[in-house]
Design a protein around this nucleic acid. Sequence first.
DNA 1: CCCTCTTTTTTCGTGAAGCGAAACACGGTC
DNA 2: GACCGTGTTTCGCTTCACGAAAAAAGAGGG
Lengths: 260, 260
Amino acid sequence: MSKAGDQYAVLPVAKAMQVFAYVASQAHDVTLTEVVQALDMPKTTVFRYLQTLSAAGLFSHNIEQDRYGVGERFRELARLDAVYHSLRSTAQGELDKLVGGFRETVNLAVLSRSDIVYVDIREANRSQRFQARIGHRNPIHSTSLGKAIAAFLPEEQVQGLPVNFEPRTYRTVADARTFRRHVDDARRRGYAIEIGENEDGIACIGVPILDGYGYPIAAVSLSAPDNRMKTLVDRAAEALQEASRRITAALPQISLRGGV
Amino acid sequence: MSKAGDQYAVLPVAKAMQVFAYVASQAHDVTLTEVVQALDMPKTTVFRYLQTLSAAGLFSHNIEQDRYGVGERFRELARLDAVYHSLRSTAQGELDKLVGGFRETVNLAVLSRSDIVYVDIREANRSQRFQARIGHRNPIHSTSLGKAIAAFLPEEQVQGLPVNFEPRTYRTVADARTFRRHVDDARRRGYAIEIGENEDGIACIGVPILDGYGYPIAAVSLSAPDNRMKTLVDRAAEALQEASRRITAALPQISLRGGV
DNA sequence: CCCTCTTTTTTCGTGAAGCGAAACACGGTC
DNA sequence: GACCGTGTTTCGCTTCACGAAAAAAGAGGG
């Protein structure tokens, strides 16, 4: 494989990845010597990589047979990536359609601990200063994205959410009761609204994206200055829900349960 | 994570795996500084790991945005593993049932280049000396496993098989014509037979395992001394086909195409 | 348009630590 | 019981990974 030329390559890492790729592409669990012969590396070196990768959980080491195979941690990461990858790629077209139809900013976000994380953002209007960026976090309680996801989370998981009710504007939801009401409303309605609770003058309407098991793995939202938003709430909610349904349909049938 | 105590751990590899896990578990493509902050590692170090992992194809480096994400090579390996893992785990019970029902050795194998590779083996009779082991290879043309798979491969792929017709016993198929006939017979019949062509005195009957797209990703076989085999060909073929169908049904709906 | 701040890339000398030969231990097999 | 073919362990020698700090490349902002 390419190893010269990549001037910043860290050799142990590059070689360990060769081992990784070999083991992962075998249908059976492999032995130390098998890897050594296949990759023509010193026994000690391969031994150490196998140990290291096993310790990291990417491999599982079957002690009684002295065989190494792909580990559960790797499979978790792979499942997570499969879902997220599919989410982003199928959402792409839908986001484009939405931003094209409304000429307002459209966001895609997932839940991560007590925050929502922006995964994709399409700005209709590049002059806005405050827009979020990919990877940025916002609280659950101050965004329509967060409320939309919370609304469709299993009850016990909503309880467990570490919401801190940190105020973002003077309108930010400040206590559990109000939050609860907003979330219940969102569940009943099928979409969440947020008016200047995260950023003054900006309103948002958010819709969850459910996976095949009804679990809200993400949310899409449309955000606009609140005067403009008033006139298009209904149309936007409808369009967002349609987009969400289409994204759900294209998602792989994989459950994430505790994987996040 | 555990890093002390693992006396053979190679630090660069272990740390690179932390980076790997972080990137893979984010829903969005990440930036260098984001990883640095999240993992609290020196910037240069993380930079090098990201470069190394990108060079290995496990990550993709989005140059214009300077973001790193999971790469296609990783996804390939993940798909491959998902299929193989599922294959082995769902085959397990079926193999047990077969060996219990017939008291003969049962094998599970996949195709790898010009060989079949044993993935699981259940020996009814531990006194046999010649049995294959997990990971061992045998030629396609001398085994019922190979012929069963070849019989259900797309035509152009059968042509491309680098079969060398190396003789294993005096009965081994020695030319393309005969091989062709055996394979065609197997396709017609739904199972392949092999009588002393791989090992004197041992006969085998093999059935392909198709994935959801009809592609033969593996094969199961029952092998027995040929005198015993005579009396149970029909029953065995039936049982193997039943097992194969059940395994297929439990396989994930993922296509492997050129991934092997 | 230039200036400034942020983020990524490059350089470089030091010394920690990865390397691999070879020796050891272990479990089968003849 | 001696002999493979395994997987571990040790050990001394460099190698090569490390991270500070500087340079380059972008992104805003005045």
